[in-house]
């Protein structure tokens, strides 16, 4: 009798939890927010390698990056030799480029943000994420899929009116349990697929597991792609807005 009562209670609890978890199925925006937070942390510090691959050749660019929220970014180029020591700083809407060998600071105007970054398939904008994946788009869940053995939501991003974004539409695959961004498709304003992005090689990075390998493939161009590998990444590190100053831009290395 007692056992039966306990069983019944447990059953109710389980059903209840099921209901609750069902009722708390996150909205598309919440999914994107959680995935973005996971990818960026409150702050981060790390090292990355970007490889530009073309049918005939490839080039590597290595860098150190620091970020705080979406407002502050600093990038220090460690290779190739010719570019080594260059620093990019973003504070709110302002962005600068500093070249130590000639002691020159250039303020980067908005039109330059859309330019390909150092010849890659990324723009300056992709790199310092001037537009916000959370704030600048409306999100909706358009389907489910299984990728690399992860159950995923497929989320569609439609730019909000007047948002300063580059894409006409984005579709993103986000895993349900771990909130990994595993795949994305970028469409232009005419709804034509432009870039395909895939993320893989999930590894421990600092306090979390994340895909450490990312490939951006322009669909129109055979054999072209840009690969980004995270060599080291630490999240929620002690970084203050003061770190992202003109003075420190000349000192980081």
């Amino acid at each position: 009798m007692r056992i039966k009562a306990i069983f019944t209670l447990l059953l109710f609890i389980m059903i209840g939890m099921g209901f609750i978890s069902h009722a708390q199925e996150p909205t598309a925006k919440e999914i994107v927010q959680t995935a973005t937070d996971k990818l960026n942390g409150k702050s981060s510090r790390g090292e990355m390698k970007m490889t530009i691959i073309r049918p005939e050749w490839s080039r590597e660019i290595s860098m150190k990056v620091w970020s705080l929220g979406t407002e502050y970014y600093m990038i220090y180029i460690t290779a190739p030799a010719r570019e080594r020591g260059q620093v990019f700083l973003k504070r709110h809407e302002d962005m600068w480029n500093y070249m130590p060998n000639i002691d020159r600071m250039i303020k980067i105007p908005p039109s330059m943000m859309m330019q390909s970054w150092m010849g890659s398939d990324f723009t300056n904008n992709d790199l310092v994420k001037v537009s916000s994946m959370v704030e600048d788009y409306n999100h909706s869940i358009i389907g489910q899929d299984s990728l690399l053995e992860y159950d995923c939501w497929i989320i569609q991003f439609d730019p909000k009116p007047n948002a300063a974004v580059v894409w006409g539409k984005i579709e993103m695959w986000i895993s349900k349990e771990e909130y990994y961004e595993l795949k994305a498709k970028y469409y232009d304003e005419d709804d034509k697929l432009v870039n395909k992005e895939t993320m893989s090689d999930i590894e421990q990075m600092g306090d979390r597991r994340l895909p450490s390998h990312m490939e951006m493939v322009p669909v129109d161009e055979e054999g072209h792609k840009t690969v980004m590998d995270f060599i080291e990444m630490k999240f929620n590190v002690d970084l203050q807005p003061e770190f992202f100053s003109i003075q420190n831009m000349k000192r980081v290395r």
Binding site: K107, I108, P109, S111, M112
Partner: peptide, 11 residues
């Protein structure tokens, strides 16, 4: 000065 007019750099 260095800034921008619309999206163009202006200095």
């Amino acid at each position: 000065w260095a800034g921008q007019i619309e999206k163009a750099g202006f200095n």
